[in-house]
Simulated assay, not measured.
Amino acid sequence: MSPGGTGVTLEQVKTGVDGLDILLSGGFVKGSTILISGSYGSGKTLLALQYAFYQAQRGDKVLYVSTSEPVFKIRQFAGNLAFFDESLVRTGYSGIAGKKDRNHAGFVEFVESSMGIVTGIYFNDVSSLMEEIRDMVNSKGIQHLIIDPITTISMLYDSEADLRKDLLLMSAWLTRMGCTVLLTAEASDQKLLDVEKYLADCVIDLRSHMESDERRFSICIEKLRGNRQLMCSQQYLPGSDGIKMLTREQAVSE
């Protein structure tokens, strides 16, 4: 049942991160847009990759658009992670063959859309990039889209209104397709985050600080439409096995 008592049952998507689904009261709402914000080194890409491979292992199709790193660097990083599975990986650039690709088993397809590509090699403008992403989602039957980070694309907009309009249109279209969307963003760009937090259905904030000469990490669910979240933060550890949520006892002993 929905929290408001409307009688509508919302389908949920497990994240693959032990403990995070508890904070989310079961997981993300299918077809929603999730914003993962955090400072450099807080584990945004790690969480996105962990989510991507978990969904692919379940048989779902994931499109991972890297906007700031070339594909080989993302794969190099992912290859050292415990959950990485080479058999689930596809790589390529934007531009899709005409035939549909809906019958294959789960996969993670990495697409490189770095700044150089976005600004001239493959795309004339940001709108054409958005259109290309929509075409890829449609032609491949993508169920999960990850843009890491959205910050890079957003930087190319002169107008906040145009950014908000394009993100809203793309989000609405993807929702109708039943595609769940993860966006990562740097916490330092507050103006950009104000736009993205407004549009997102779920906002996850990854925080870190120094304590007794050690770096501590905590995760907070700031916003969650369509479900109840636990209104608290929880400590976690980023590592080669992904994001690991800590119990209160573990957090004290770390």
Results as ranks from 00 to 15, higher is better:
Cys179Gly: 06
Ser188Trp: 14
Asp148Gly: 06
Gly178Cys: 06
Gln190Ser: 08
Leu156Ser: 05
Glu131Pro: 09
Gly141Asn: 04
Ile153Glu: 06
Leu145Ser: 06
Leu129Cys: 04
Ile146Gly: 00
Lys165Glu: 12
Met130Ser: 14
Ile150Asp: 06
Thr180His: 01
Asp125Gly: 00
Ser171Met: 09
Ile142Lys: 01
Ser171Lys: 08
Leu169Tyr: 05
Arg134Ser: 09
Thr184Ala: 02
Arg134Pro: 00
Val126Leu: 12
Thr151Tyr: 04
Leu183Ala: 04
Val181Met: 13
Ala161Val: 04
Gln190Phe: 04
Leu183Arg: 03
Ile153Phe: 10
Arg134Gly: 05
Ala185Ser: 10
Gly141Asp: 09
Gln190Gly: 01
Ile147Thr: 02
Thr151Phe: 05
Met130Asp: 07
Asn138Met: 13
Val137Asp: 09
Gly141Ile: 02
Leu167Asn: 03
Glu132Arg: 05
Met136Asn: 08
Ser159Gln: 08
Thr180Ala: 03
Asp158Cys: 06
Leu145Glu: 07
Leu129Arg: 01
Ala161Gln: 12
Gln190His: 15
Met155Asp: 10
Lys140Glu: 09
Ser127Trp: 07
Gly141Glu: 07
Glu131Lys: 10
Cys179Leu: 01
Glu131Asp: 15
Ile133Tyr: 08
Leu156Gln: 07
Met130Trp: 09
Ala161Thr: 09
Met177Glu: 12
His144Phe: 13
Thr180Ser: 06
Asp158Met: 09
Ala161His: 10
Leu183Val: 03
Ala185Gly: 04
Asn124Trp: 02
Thr180Pro: 00
Gly141Ser: 10
Gln190Ala: 14
Arg164Gln: 07
Leu183Thr: 02
Leu174Asp: 03
Ser159Asp: 15
Val137Ser: 04
Tyr122Lys: 08
Ser139Glu: 11
Asp135Arg: 12
Leu163Gly: 02
Ile146Glu: 02
Leu169Asp: 14
Val181Cys: 05
Ile153Arg: 02
Glu186Thr: 04
Asn138Asp: 15
Ser171Gly: 07
Thr175Val: 03
Lys140Gln: 14
Leu156Thr: 02
Ser171Ala: 15
Ser188Met: 13
Leu167Cys: 07
